[in-house]
Design a binder for these strands. Structure first.
Length: 512
RNA sequence: GGCCCGUUCGUCUAUCGGCUAGGACAUCUCCCUUUCACGGAGGAAAGACGGGUUCGAUUCCCGUACGGGCUACCA
């Protein structure tokens, strides 16, 4: 259809943490671009100066970096179409708005916020709870359509605050082909006269997105479904500005919904239901309130990207685990679902579990080290840690699970679940372990299989079932009813430490 | 309210007119394991409703219902 270079953009407004749905939009943009050998541009849409949040832009970059979705062009990466922050492009928008006015596609409006409020109050009825600045209303307002030319000229000359609004045509049907939804159409009589240029001289999203997509030669525009209703405004702007031939192809992505059904997923749902919604931790600079992120919850970026991709897309087979590279290869926008998807945290965790299981210990090492360090466990022996990771990773759903699964290798268990053995504890068992200590002391070869043999032979000699003794040994070494095979643990702990822990617990049981 | 979009197991989804409607998560049963997991076997579980079109509809069309989005000088 068009053979020009694929250029896509993600255009967030830096007002806080990056929502999971936002990251998915990035992902689909990225996949599409990379698959077609195109460029992925990050453009910051900071046209609302009242919503500036310090740190939000840096957060976006950190998040993309963590996910491995690096832009080719952005405020920090630079590029041939700089600047990539709309606030820095402010000067370029007015001319286009003025051009629209000159050609009769837009008009000046001098209504104050109070007047607008008044208008809404005045026309508000039960049937029409939110009156719009549309074809019926605009003739009742103060704008260059109702005021005579001289008055308008004077107002302009006096520097009276005003906006520029698009003049929606009366009887037209605007339609386009959405890459996901197919044919979509709107009747212009139902669309209001959106503000294009604000009184502060900044463009609204509607103008900025069209101008910048044009200037930056964007070929495909992917965004959330919540933008669908304003699509006719954008379509018309492309046409009125004379750029129709260069208009990108649109794709409106389905929304990510709350687990229990009603509405799109929000940060609040995560807080309420106990799962992350933001990609990474976000601390609101005003309230200092911390919102947990997937990263800090213990998700691998590979898993995060994978689960996001599967929310609304599949390759038509039963495959569910995809690497980023694989996604780049197999992704197709046509296979993206139309309907919104309810977010299922259980399934999200499953993806992470799968990725932990299939990721090499060596690559898990830095993250695990960090997690243990957060628990005051400084591990210096990488080789040892790697061995431990391999031993326990299949029972870790989140990276943070390594705290429980691995820390007993490095420190005496903080809690000793002696209650689990005490009810069935007797002198016979006590004797057995005393003897076990002795034979462990004598053993020259310290490895799992050998220890198990020693253990079982000794049990037989004492006429005890090994099964009755395994749990006590586990408690002695681990502190609780979890962890990998006991003899594997003993092998890693080493002779001295193993004996020390058995002795220690024995005395605990005696004095309890 | 208006406009727009959507609708297959509880959840994510496969199906592109003829299927015993498949898979995954969760759930249940069993096996493995005298910890917790992993793994294995099996079970229960779905086409919103009503009309068409058709030899035949989950699949195409139209209504209805339900769900969602938008309705700011926010994106």
């Amino acid at each position: 259809m068009n053979s020009r270079k694929v250029r896509v953009r993600f255009a967030p407004s830096p007002t806080g943490g990056l929502h999971l749905g936002g990251v998915r939009t990035v992902l689909f943009n990225y996949l599409f671009a990379k698959q077609h050998g195109g460029d992925f541009i990050l453009r910051i849409e900071d046209t609302d100066q009242t919503r500036f949040v310090p740190g939000a832009e840096a957060y976006i970059f950190n998040t993309l970096n963590w996910c491995g979705l690096t832009p080719d062009e952005s405020p920090v990466h630079g590029g041939p179409f700089a600047p990539y922050r709309q606030s820095e492009r402010k000067a370029s928008y007015r001319q286009y708005a003025e051009e629209l006015v000159k050609n009769g596609y837009a008009y000046y409006a001098f209504d104050t916020p109070e007047e607008l409020e008044q208008m809404r109050a005045q026309f508000k009825t039960a049937e029409n709870p939110s009156p719009q600045y549309n074809q019926q209303i605009r003739i009742k307002m103060r704008n260059s359509l109702t005021l005579d030319a001289a008055t308008v000229a004077q107002l302009l000359k006096d520097g009276v605050p005003h906006v520029i609004r698009i003049k929606m045509p009366e009887q037209e049907t605007v339609h386009f082909t959405d890459m996901i939804r197919g044919e979509v159409s709107f009747h212009t009589s139902q669309v209001d006269d959106k503000v294009l240029l604000k009184a502060d001289g900044m463009p609204t999203y509607h103008l900025a997105v069209v101008v910048d997509d044009y200037l930056m030669q964007i070929s495909h525009a992917f965004r959330g479904e919540e933008w669908l209703p304003s699509a006719p405004v954008h379509l018309l702007l492309w046409k009125y500005l004379g750029w129709e031939a260069q208009m990108p192809q649109w794709a409106h992505l389905p929304l990510i919904l709350k687990p229990e059904g009603n509405g799109k997923l929000s940060k609040r749902d995560g807080d309420r239901l106990g799962f992350p919604v933001f990609a990474m931790d976000w601390t609101d600079p005003k309230s200092n309130e911390l919102t947990i992120g997937f990263k800090e919850r213990g998700f691998l970026p590979e898993a995060f990207v994978n689960l996001l991709a599967m929310l609304g897309w599949n390759d038509g087979t039963d495959q569910e685990i995809f690497s980023l590279d694989e996604l780049v290869q197999k992704f197709s926008i046509e296979r993206v679902h139309k309907a919104g998807a309810k977010f299922d945290y259980e399934k999200a965790k499953w993806f992470n579990h799968e990725w932990i299981k299939r990721t090499e210990a060596r690559r898990l090492l830095p993250a695990v080290k960090e997690i243990l360090a957060a628990d005051r466990m400084m591990v210096t022996d990488d080789a040892l840690l790697e061995k431990i990771i391999n031993l326990v990773k299949e029972r870790c759903t989140l990276l943070t699970d390594f705290t429980q699964q691995a820390s007993f290798f490095f420190a005496l268990p903080a809690e000793m679940d002696t209650a689990a053995v005490k009810p069935k504890w007797d002198d016979k068992k006590n004797l057995f372990f005393t003897e076990l200590i002795r034979s462990f002391q004598l053993s020259t070869l310290w490895e799992a299989a050998g220890l198990e043999t020693t253990f079982k032979e000794l049990a037989a000699a004492n006429q005890l079932k090994p099964g009755e003794l395994m749990l006590p040994l586990r408690i002695m070494l681990v502190g609780g009813k979890y962890g990998p095979g006991v003899f594997d643990i003993a092998a890693i702990l080493g002779k001295e430490e193993t004996i020390r822990r058995i002795t220690h617990t024995l005395s605990l049981l005696e004095h309890a």
